[in-house]
Design a protein around this nucleic acid. Structure first.
Lengths: 346, 346
DNA sequence: ATGAAAGCGCTAACAG
DNA sequence: CTGTTAGCGCTTTCAT
């Protein structure tokens, strides 16, 4: 590969001049600039980003740390992050931690050694202290770590309330909740939202809440048990779409019709929710927008540009599909006015 | 951040000595090593990977170029690549090209400037010529580019034959094919496999092959038209799972029962295929293994270790689920002996 | 407007 | 066994 020296020699100027035209700063005569450009072209010269990084102490790269890209929530997020980063001239290092603290800290260390300018984390295990030590901007997505760390999340509680009250509106009278892990904030917030809506209903029992752990397999099992214990249940709010899909399978397995006998609503808005039969009604997060927002935020922090707010709470949206329909149990189901905001393309 | 100089000063030795203990090469007295280690600990020193890269002309990073991480085939692949790379001490830059040549070439250029040691591409648009210019190892996954570029693929034709003959075995007598894009090799190979099995059957018509373009929306439309034009069709081999899911939806929409009236089999083995009702029978690719294999291959090339073969063609596996069952059309369906190798976990 | 030269943090001869 | 030193390729004062 040609270096800046080769270009300088070829153009008959000094490396400083070449550097000047490369970065278009400082004065440089139009004629000499032409010579340099020509030399660059002839040699097919590309500046060495590593050398530049070493000097400038910045690398135009960021780290993206997710638990597991295979989790259907993350591909779209990762795509948004990469798109936005690329647009702003940054490359992204891609890391999976499986929610494992050591792995996470190890990655952070490596990223730091590689001079990343900032990092985006989706993590529950990261402490504020560790982040401080890094001395580079860190932003959190989907999970709030501490008040000091800039964060992009969605209105989980509000979404959960929306889901639950929607089930009430279409006529469900015994609504259960398939909740996520107790150590994950957004799972607790969603459970809170559910409780807010039905916690004080005369029919409510704490055993209407089942642990699904955000995983399909567990959710299937939990739903089967739930429905066997409580055959009166006519609506389920699952705290994520994966569990909602599990719930659909469970219902199918024990012969409950969805949505006729049992309405099911999920949370997230992952594309897998459109693969099911019936297609899943869900509270959709603006996943791509979240990715864009965190990345914008991070880049602003890196480039020390002013940021308005460091805590963004984005809105969620009810997408009505087939897994919920007005229940015709003539006990008072009301008309529901929501339109289908689905992104179905056919 | 502390530098090697700081450590040297703190330990009362020269930077060379520090470098020696860092890289554990060259002789260094055990006592001085201890002093150095202690200084490193005290200063919480971490060597600067950029400076090291600059000197060594290698960065311990690789690039991963995929069309779109949102495409359900790629998250698992990306995960495998990242896992394997990490295990071998490499980080991975993550790039989405949308199959766009300019974007792809642009990424390659940037990666090159950033000194990546090698790159893994999933691309149809890359030319051998471009790869040559790079002067670093490049390996291709899922798509063969040219003979010179080391590649990991699966036995597409064989898998397609397996899918088609399986449909015959369970009693289908009018088997259609939902094919992928004409410019993608694996789509053509899968179509070839299908043709091999049924192309000369008395009932065969070229209009039994529909273009689905690997996309759900298109596949739904194509399947509806196909079934309206040819109501006699009792089996569909879709060239990927996403289209197979589309076919299931199409069948559902026009009131054909799957699998009773219409058997559907996909290709890929993505997890989404387990979210559907009925769950999808498919020809599964060993996606994770493919990722591991390309990464191993790439790292060997980078480190100039001997590689046995530079063209790996992995086996696919039939996973029987619910979307295909022995057709009871008493016209001669035979027993089929395949076991369920499904990864269903419940 | 241009060039010389120092230095980013590290590694690897080479000398001792 | 350890230290001195010359780079890796680039950017940026500081002179001129």
């Amino acid at each position: 590969m040609a270096t800046i020296r080769d270009v300088a020699k070829q153009a008959g100027v000094s490396v400083a001049t070449v550097s000047r035209v490369l970065n278009s700063n400082g004065y440089v005569n139009n004629e000499t600039k032409k010579k340099v450009d020509e030399a660059i072209r002839q040699l097919n010269y590309k500046p060495n980003a590593v050398a530049r990084s070493l000097y400038k102490k910045t690398s135009k790269t960021i780290g993206l740390i997710v638990p597991d890209i295979v989790n259907p929530f993350f591909p779209e997020l990762a795509r948004a992050v990469e798109d936005t980063a690329h647009k702003k001239g940054y490359n992204v290092f891609f890391c999976n931690t499986d929610e494992n603290v050591e792995k996470e800290e190890h990655y952070l260390e490596i990223l730091l050694q590689k001079y990343v300018d900032g990092v985006i984390v989706a993590s529950n295990t990261l402490t504020a202290e560790k982040v401080k030590e890094l001395n580079i901007p860190v932003v959190s997505i989907d999970r709030k770590i501490t008040a000091e760390i800039p964060t992009v999340v969605v209105k989980n509680k509000e979404g959960a309330q929306k889901a639950t009250s929607y089930l009430k509106e279409i006529g469900c009278e015994r609504i259960a909740h398939l909740r996520g892990p107790h150590h994950i904030d957004n799972a607790n917030e969603r459970a809170d939202g559910y409780l807010e809506e039905v916690g004080s209903a005369p029919w409510f029992q704490s055993s209407y809440i089942a642990d699904g752990n955000y995983v399909m397999k567990t959710a299937i099992q939990a739903t089967v048990e739930l429905l066997e214990r409580h055959p009166e249940i006519d609506g389920i709010f699952a705290a994520n779409d994966v569990m909602a899909i599990g719930a659909v399978k469970a219902a199918h397995r024990i012969g409950k019709m969805v949505p006729e006998e049992l309405a099911i609503i999920g949370f997230d808005g992952i594309s897998m929710a459109e693969a099911t039969t019936p297609e899943l009604t869900t509270i959709a997060q603006p996943i791509y927008d979240m990715g864009t927002a965190v990345t914008d935020l991070l880049v602003k922090l890196i480039e020390k540009k002013p940021v308005e707010r460091t805590f963004l709470e984005l809105k969620v949206e009810l997408i009505e599909r087939e897994s919920t329909r007005k229940q015709n149990n003539n006990k008072g189901g009301r008309e529901h006015g929501a339109k289908d905001h689905s992104s179905r393309q056919y």
